[in-house]
């Protein structure tokens, strides 16, 4: 009887041990793409107002987007940064094209309130938060690490499309040398919730140090840049 009990206990212990070992040595599951989807339209998620381009979903949480800057984790553990800005009818801005008296008129507000007011009063916005249909052009450029290098995903809302006479992409290694620049029209084939998505791969300007080129998206062409007429243009830019 005692022997049987001892045997059972031993078996139980052995089983437990084996189970534990099995769990420990079990092959680690391969990464999947159920949540971190590969479809650039899926990265557009609803927000309180409008939509948000989720860098979490797009980059498997290996990025940080804040105030016109995207920091991306590189293969060697370093940081690759991309800086966003815009030009609204010849007037440069960073994330929001604000009226000149904006800050004096919003004195006393908290940062959150001020940012909300800024979003409401801006003539154009370049940020992950897009509000289609409100009459204000919204755009965002997301850099994503892929096998073929950095791919830029370009998001613009329907206001951006309707208010600009044309939407082109101009990119290249040196803005001061039009021979290095290329251009093509924005593709409006992908649409979700009032936001169009296009992408650009194969650019190399971001690999230079220092950087002399970049990517422009908006009412601009190489010829307008050659004649310095972009001072009247509206576009967003990443460098």
């Amino acid at each position: 009887m005692k022997r049987t009990t001892t045997l059972i206990i031993l078996l139980v212990v052995l089983l437990a041990l084996l189970s534990w070992v099995a769990i420990q040595v079990a092959p680690k599951p391969a990464p999947t793409h159920q949540f971190f989807t590969e479809n650039s339209k899926d990265w557009i998620v609803p927000a309180e107002t409008g939509v948000e381009v989720s860098s979490l979903l797009a980059t498997r949480s290996e990025t940080r987007v804040q105030a016109g800057q995207q920091d991306l984790l590189t293969e060697d553990g370093g940081i690759a940064s991309f800086f966003l800005s815009g030009m609204y009818h010849g007037k440069r801005f960073d994330t929001l094209a604000l009226p000149s008296d904006f800050f004096s008129k919003t004195k006393g507000m908290s940062i959150t309130e001020q940012h909300r007011a800024g979003e409401e009063q801006a003539a154009m916005r370049v940020q992950p938060h897009l509000i289609p249909g409100d009459g204000v052009p919204d755009g965002f450029i997301l850099a994503r690490k892929e096998e073929k290098g950095i791919v830029f995903y370009l998001y613009i809302d329907d206001d951006f499309r309707s208010q600009l006479s044309a939407v082109n992409l101009v990119w290249g290694d040196d803005f001061s040398d039009s021979g290095t620049l290329r251009e093509r029209p924005f593709s409006f084939a992908n649409l979700k919730d009032g936001v169009y998505v296009d992408s650009l791969s194969g650019a190399s300007w971001y690999q230079d140090d220092p950087i002399k080129g970049g990517l422009l998206v908006g009412d601009i062409t190489i010829s307008t840049m050659e004649s310095f007429e972009e001072t009247e243009s509206t576009f967003m830019m990443v460098r």
Binding site: F175, P210, K212, F228
Partner: peptide, 15 residues
Amino acid sequence: SDTAWFHADTLHKPL
């Protein structure tokens, strides 16, 4: 910071 003429600007991204 950048100048009005971004054609001529070169950008450094130091840590």
